[in-house]
Design a protein around this nucleic acid. Sequence first.
DNA 1: TAACCTTTGCAATCAAGTTGCAAAGGTACA
DNA 2: TGTACCTTTGCAACTTGATTGCAAAGGTTA
Lengths: 136, 136
Amino acid sequence: MIDKAEKMLASRNVNPTPTRVLVLSCLLKDARAQSLKDLEVTLYNSDRSSIFRTLKTFEEFKVVHSIEDGSGRVKYAVCEEGCNCDPEDLHYHFYCTNCSITYCLLDSPIPTVKLPANFKMSQANMVIKGLCDKCT
Amino acid sequence: MIDKAEKMLASRNVNPTPTRVLVLSCLLKDARAQSLKDLEVTLYNSDRSSIFRTLKTFEEFKVVHSIEDGSGRVKYAVCEEGCNCDPEDLHYHFYCTNCSITYCLLDSPIPTVKLPANFKMSQANMVIKGLCDKCT
DNA sequence: TAACCTTTGCAATCAAGTTGCAAAGGTACA
DNA sequence: TGTACCTTTGCAACTTGATTGCAAAGGTTA
């Protein structure tokens, strides 16, 4: 996982500092999107602001994408290989209102939505809420 | 507008206090979704917490729906007549990253998204981001 | 070693959301 | 008319997540 993280950072031209490798391997370990708080708890040796800035850097270099799932905490999930966070790279997310876990629904690319004249789409934040399989 | 607000509150069984009528007519006046802050500025005679609780009441009685557009402020928009905020009543929203205005795209109902086995959808928060016609 | 840039840790700050509590307003009924 | 009661409002305080300033630590280069 550490290995994979290092390779990923290299491919995105992000300086692989220990903190960054740690944060990224933590995100890679689990399929679910994680909040700053989640990471803070797991990586209790690292400082919150360091993790925060790491995530910002990751976002900037398209290592992760952020999801506002309505929980009040922004969550982060690792981007797929080749992702540029362009509209065609976007997918739906599922937020379980019971266990608060947010999943990336990678099998469901978002459709083309008819926009009013002269509206230009550049990003999207799509969250479906309900109960996941463990909570039904 | 005041008249329309009163009728709407009556139809949703919400006690039409002056504050509530004021808040609702303010929301009805403009097509765009408004945040607590927006309303606070417009209705400078009313208290923030009163507006806040009014919005919570409105949400509970399906007078308005809330949208998390990623601006960091939850926005509120008046529900269509007959809306129950069920999945079939949901629509996409458009958030302009330049002027921060959030629009309801009422012409685009959200499609059925294929969920993993045993996942149950109950709500959704769909936000498309980009530039609106005034900002392109 | 010195100069320099990047990254980190700590502490402080900001902003949105939320709540406790007492006062105000309204209604019903003796 | 007065009293009890419930709802709504206004004020102030608090909670929490996000963000920033700044100095120290680490690493690189000349």
